[in-house]
């Protein structure tokens, strides 16, 4: 094997089309981040609702929530991606499916990717929310009821504010998962970071440089997110209460 290292490749113009290769990596990163962020919004909205209703005394709501979580947790993400991209447009009533398929690229891959990732992660968020709420002492809910608050009020003013602080660390790792999982969308044609690295490797044959760049970018994103979430955690901590003052104390 004769491998010629060439780090200058990133400043060379793209073989077919416009721009230079580092711009590919940056645009890949931008797609990765926008897919991840938008999916995260969906995951939070649905996940919190599902997580909360699973802790209520309403049996039908709990069942619905459980079914939701089991459905999205037990099918591999890649298979779910295929279901959203290949299967859904075929089974939707005619007009809608065609509309989905004929969206202009890259939106035709972006939309299913965001929805898929959002729904998939919502099940995991729901699990964390439920665990967070259940880890609170039961006395808190009882105290709320004793004060004459309704169920909704108890959640709004007592349980959720505390649970929110508890779930920040697991949410950090779920957010990182969503960024990493967005790479699975390359299988449905989204030009995100991993796909861009792989494209660049195919165009230039500089496989190692391309993958090293992608790896470095992913690690940088991790560093920034972990740092940001630590700051958030410090800012919102309730002094002297559980779930504050750093996780576990491993270090």
């Amino acid at each position: 094997m004769n491998y010629n290292w060439n780090w200058k490749i990133f400043w060379e113009p793209v073989a077919a089309g416009n721009g230079v290769y580092w711009e590919w990596m940056v645009s890949g990163l931008a797609w990765t981040l926008s897919t991840g962020l938008l999916a995260w919004v969906i995951a939070l909205l649905i996940g919190v609702v599902i997580g909360v209703i699973r802790t209520t005394p309403l049996i039908w709501a709990v069942r619905l929530g459980n079914a939701w979580v089991e459905l999205f947790r037990n099918i591999p993400l890649l298979v779910q991606m295929f279901l959203w991209y290949f299967v859904l447009p075929e089974v939707l009533p005619f007009g809608l499916g065609t509309m989905m398929k004929q969206m202009d690229p890259p939106w035709a891959s972006f939309a299913p990717a965001v929805l898929c990732l959002g729904f998939y992660t919502s099940a995991r968020v729901a699990e964390q929310v439920k665990a967070g709420i259940q880890s609170l002492p039961r006395g808190q809910t009882l105290a709320g009821t004793a004060l004459g608050l309704t169920m909704v009020q108890t959640y709004r003013y007592v349980t959720l504010p505390m649970a929110f602080r508890i779930v920040i660390p697991p949410f950090t790792s779920e957010f990182m998962n969503i960024i990493k999982n967005s790479s699975v969308a390359l299988t449905i044609g989204l030009l995100e970071l991993t796909q861009r690295a792989s494209d660049m490797s195919e165009y230039t044959f500089q496989t190692f440089e391309a993958f090293t760049a992608a790896t470095t970018l992913y690690i940088m994103v991790t560093l920034i997110v972990v740092y940001g979430m630590r700051q958030l955690e410090k800012k919102v901590q309730v002094p002297g209460f559980i779930g504050t003052g750093g996780q576990g104390g491993g270090r």
């Binding site: 990493k180 790479s183 190692f208 993958f211 992608a214 790896t215 992913y218 991790t222 560093l223």
Partner: peptide, 23 residues
């Protein structure tokens, strides 16, 4: 490090790199 990069990327990395590392 491993936990901050996507599995797909790791799969590609190893697919192309393992033969060279073993060599």
């Amino acid at each position: 490090g491993i936990r901050s990069i996507p599995l797909v990327l790791v799969i590609f990395w190893f697919y192309f790199m393992v033969p060279l590392i073993l060599q």
